[in-house]
Amino acid sequence: MKSRRSVTVAMAAVSVLVGTAPTADAAWNRPVSAWSRPVAVWNMNEWSGSRTMVDSSGNGHTGRIGPEVGTGIQALGATGYRFDRLEPDSPPTHPGHLVTVSDSPSLDPGTRDFTMTVRLRTTHKFGNVVQKGQATVRGGNFKMQIPGGIAECLYRGSSGSLLVRSPTRLNDGRWHTVRCDRNGSGLIMAVDGRVVARKPGWTGAISNGWPVTIGGKADCDQIEVGCDYYAGDLDYVQFDAG
Rank of each mutant, 00 (worst) to 15 (best):
R121G: 11
L98K: 11
V39L: 08
S3M: 02
S33C: 09
A75Y: 15
A135L: 00
N128D: 06
P211L: 08
I188Y: 09
G110D: 09
G216W: 04
L76A: 15
T52Y: 01
N29F: 03
A12M: 10
V41Q: 00
D219M: 03
V9H: 06
V14E: 10
R198A: 10
V129P: 05
K199F: 02
N141L: 08
L162P: 10
K143L: 09
R194A: 15
T79I: 13
G184W: 08
L187I: 02
G80K: 15
W175R: 13
K143N: 05
G216R: 04
V9C: 12
G160W: 12
R82H: 12
A151P: 01
L17F: 03
S6Q: 11
P95V: 03
N45M: 05
G133C: 08
P147L: 12
A78L: 05
E87M: 11
G215A: 02
T168R: 06
D233P: 00
G66D: 14
Y236F: 15
F114T: 03
R182I: 11
E152N: 04
V129R: 04
P38G: 11
V54G: 00
V7W: 06
E87L: 15
G58W: 01
R156K: 13
M1P: 08
N208C: 04
G96L: 02
W210K: 10
T8E: 15
G96S: 13
G216V: 08
N45H: 02
A231L: 07
V225P: 03
T136Q: 06
L163N: 06
T100M: 15
S48K: 09
G204F: 09
V164G: 03
F114V: 03
E224S: 14
R174V: 04
T62L: 08
